[in-house]
Design a protein around this nucleic acid. Structure first.
Lengths: 243, 243
DNA sequence: CAACCTACTCGTACGCTGTACGATCCCGAA
DNA sequence: TTCGGGATCGTACAGCGTACGAGTAGGTTG
């Protein structure tokens, strides 16, 4: 009560962090296509142009938002074997990306990587190196894993919520134009219309299936890699900053 | 010569196909962000509003463009074993998506699937079913494979052209702000700055590594699936339209 | 206290976007 | 020749990102 401000504090001071957080919240709530500089400013109780004193332009605003997403992904824990660590990282990535559907489409073509992105990448590479993967094997492992994880997230964002009845609805709509269209896709009908519609489709378990398939494959790769490079120099340091 | 048209045909008649093809060509040439109704119309020697008699709106224009991309992907051939068939389909998908970088970011959130998309999906599912995959295994296989393929294409579109020196340039730029930033990412330096910069990074072979890893895993799944469902009903028909 | 500077806020305006509307034109059928 | 319907397109409008510059608040210095 000692401060002479109005009781209802209509606007707190802006800051880069506040702007980014509000932008992410708006994207989660209304979708990325309705994220407008004016709307974002309104949300913050500010004028549109005020934003530009904390963010150089919308493109870099999006960069910042994406790095927030990366920073929400849990790094692979260091106190378990590499497989469980990678598994946890992968699951956390999928969950985060599912929470931020708006982000996936924006990652294409983006060339600047923020600190959240870089430090996550670094932690993942470190986990693999510490587990005995050779440099070559590390690159391979990283490549497969990330492609799968982001690809799965991409597909998950394609189909909105329930795959089964959604797809049925889409098929129905197609049937509106061509009555016999479905007859041209018998396997689609069998698998999606039949099996999936009955048994349902759980993204989380489906994700784990492919993830474990890949992790098992990498396990074999690591064994081979270890045998081959037994006499080679070990990774730079077990963990943490070297030099 | 019998037709009374002007010799120089300054503008041919518009059509949905011509509009879509021109749109794709423009996206390939100048990138998707510079695909404008006015620019597209200019390219066709027409007025902007003329486009709307062949395409209901820009959103559906993009839908049509994406289906063109899908139709450029080769379906899995039917005269080889499932593994080679899937391998060829996967390679063709990656090549097509690499040719049409603009398309990947647009696939997110899109709910309507065109005939090119549907028929490709149908062919892939058919290939798996004919190879003896159970319904459950088919869904699994499809899920992993496509997630990996699209995820890889997504990553490929992230890094522009040469990963190695590009990343070095990016790191350099970051160093401009913080001189010691790189010291925080020792593994990134080791793997990307060291190994990748020296040995280079070939997307095509990197893609094949992960692809074969997954296909081998699916092979094991198929064996198990076949043993379990030996007495179950076979897939609806070897290939082609049933009924 | 006054003068000043710096950091921040924001009203206005411009060029560009997708597209609604209605006038115009072309061309085959009657 | 007349008609009618599809195709074309000029104009206009709302909404976008953002350049510009005027205004303001708060701390530092004389």
């Amino acid at each position: 009560m000692s401060r002479p401000e109005p009781v209802t504090e209509p606007r707190a001071r802006l800051s880069k962090e506040r702007v980014l957080r509000a932008a992410v919240a708006l994207a989660v709530r209304d979708g990325i296509e309705s994220l407008t500089m004016r709307k974002l400013a309104d949300e913050l109780g500010a004028g549109a142009m005020s934003l530009y004193h904390h963010v150089p332009n919308k493109e870099q605003l999006l960069d910042g938002m994406i790095d927030i997403v990366f920073s929400e992904i849990e790094s692979p824990p260091t106190d378990v074997d590499w497989k469980t660590a990678m598994r946890k990282r992968a699951v956390s990535t999928r969950e985060t990306l599912a929470r931020h559907r708006w982000a996936i489409g924006l990652m294409e073509g983006r060339t600047t990587h923020g600190p959240g992105n870089l430090s996550l990448h670094n932690a993942v590479l470190g986990c693999l190196r510490a587990a005995g993967f050779s440099l070559e094997a590390t690159v391979h492992a990283y490549s497969v894993l990330d492609a799968y994880i982001y690809g799965f997230a991409l597909q998950e964002s394609d189909m909105s919520s329930e795959n089964a009845e959604d797809f049925a609805a889409e098929a129905q709509r197609q049937m509106h134009e061509y009555e016999a269209v479905l007859a041209e896709y018998p396997y689609l009908v069998e698998v999606v219309g039949g099996y999936v519609a009955e048994s349902g489709y759980d993204y989380a378990t489906e994700f784990l299936f492919g993830l474990d398939l890949i992790l098992d494959g990498l396990d074999r790769l690591r064994d081979a890699s270890e045998r081959k490079h037994l006499t080679a120099r070990p990774p730079p340091e077990p963990r943490g900053l070297s030099k």
